[in-house]
Amino acid sequence: MPTFVLAQSGETVRIATFAAPLSRDGPGLLLRDIVKGEDTQIAAIVGVIDHVAPDILVLTDFDFDAGGAAMAAFSNTLAIPYPYSYSALPNAGQQTGLDLDGDGFTGDARDAFGYGRFLGDGGMAILSRLPINETDVIDLSGTLWRDVPNAKLPMVDGRAFPSEQVHEALRVSSTGHWMVPISIGDQTITLLAYSATAPVFDGPEDFNGLRNRDELKLWEAVLDGALGAPPTMPVLIGNVNADPSDGQGLRGGIADVVTRGDLQDPMPRSAGGVMVADPTHTGDPALDTADWSDGGPGNLRVSYILPSAKIAISGAGVFWPAADDPMAALLGEDGFAAGPHRLVWVDIAVP
């Protein structure tokens, strides 16, 4: 099997994903907070990114604006700004005109294609030090849920929930599904970037649980060639919002994907996750990427970077320092200065 090659031997490219809480309560507020420079959470997020210093960074909770002003302003707050960036209007906040949650009303956050209080709420952003081939980006965010191979839409008593009309119109992607080619020397990797809905906050119909699973099925269809020729060197990346061993949701989906033969799981680890392990969980706490220990589901692995099996890997990690590590100061005294999620990184190596 061919191996990924960079322009010069000895180089590495660090790829990272971070579900940092860079969404605000209304349009334009993220840009306001970035420009003011007084938001301690943004400062902590910037500190983590500066320390890990990824060459390619996927942010999965970043408010979208049509001009990319917030994305550019955020990049400029970093120690070394990124020369390339990509974003697109997410499904989050795009109203459907339908009653998606079956509460008898339309127009609220749960009635958008993806949960969102306003257009662009909680989108995604990609920052890169390597060229992004924007003209070759494929956006699958408009794919209808019912068109995903082997999709399972919510039903109640044998009837479509909340209605057949919703099943006919609803997109599977709650935020976005982007195939983003990035040039590295004379090679191209293709990010399969997305942020899935949380598999909770629904009822017995399991609307969000089923959707979370089928958002991942869309990428499986891409990798299997069901939607055309698959990319040569894909990197599945983002917030899958599912743990293969613990937490809610249909865990078998991500459990199957991390063991696919055409992908590899670098199993990024941290010392901090081990130190605050949940005693009732069965998964390896070193792999956890989020801390919801305060009244939530505990610590889970929800963010992933799964490169093609053709790519050589030289290292991987989760930025979650042990409490006695000086770098733990970047996460604040309580560990939540940059939010509940931890940045995940993988290094692609030249053989």
Rank of each mutant, 00 (worst) to 15 (best):
V200W: 12
F201G: 02
F201Y: 13
F201W: 14
F201L: 15
D202C: 06
E205W: 11
D206H: 12
F207D: 12
F207I: 11
L210F: 08
L210K: 12
L210M: 03
N212D: 01
N212P: 03
D214W: 03
D214C: 00
E215Y: 00
E215G: 00
K217V: 00
L218F: 01
W219E: 00
W219G: 00
V222I: 13
V222T: 07
V222G: 01
L223A: 04
L223V: 02
L223Y: 04
D224T: 01
L227F: 13
A229I: 15
A229Q: 15
P230R: 10
P231A: 10
P231S: 05
M233Y: 14
M233P: 05
V235M: 13
V235A: 08
I237H: 04
I237C: 02
I237R: 06
G238M: 13
G238Y: 15
N241Y: 05
N241C: 07
A242K: 00
A242C: 12
D243P: 00
D243T: 04
P244L: 07
S245V: 08
S245Q: 10
D246R: 02
D246L: 02
G247I: 07
Q248R: 10
G249F: 11
L250C: 01
L250A: 08
L250R: 14
R251K: 15
G252S: 12
G253C: 08
I254N: 04
I254A: 03
I254H: 06
A255G: 05
A255V: 04
V258C: 01
T259P: 00
R260T: 02
G261C: 00
G261Y: 03
D265R: 05
D265I: 09
P266N: 09
P268Q: 10
R269N: 06
A271I: 15
A271N: 12
G273H: 07
V274G: 08
V274I: 14
V274S: 07
M275Y: 09
A277T: 10
A277F: 06
T280I: 12
H281K: 12
D284C: 01
D288E: 05
T289Q: 10
A290I: 15
A290Y: 11
A290H: 14
A290V: 15
D291W: 07
W292R: 06
W292I: 05
S293T: 13
D294K: 12
G295Q: 01
G295E: 06
G296H: 02
G298C: 02
G298V: 05
G298K: 02
N299H: 11
N299L: 01
L300N: 08
L300A: 02
L300P: 10
V302R: 13
V302K: 10
V302E: 10
Y304W: 14
Y304C: 03
Y304P: 05
I305W: 09
L306Y: 11
S308I: 11
S308M: 09
S308Y: 12
S308R: 05
A309N: 14
A309P: 04
A309Y: 04
K310N: 13
I311M: 14
A312V: 14
A312P: 00
I313C: 09
I313W: 10
S314T: 13
G317C: 08
V318D: 03
V318Y: 09
F319Q: 12
F319N: 09
F319Y: 11
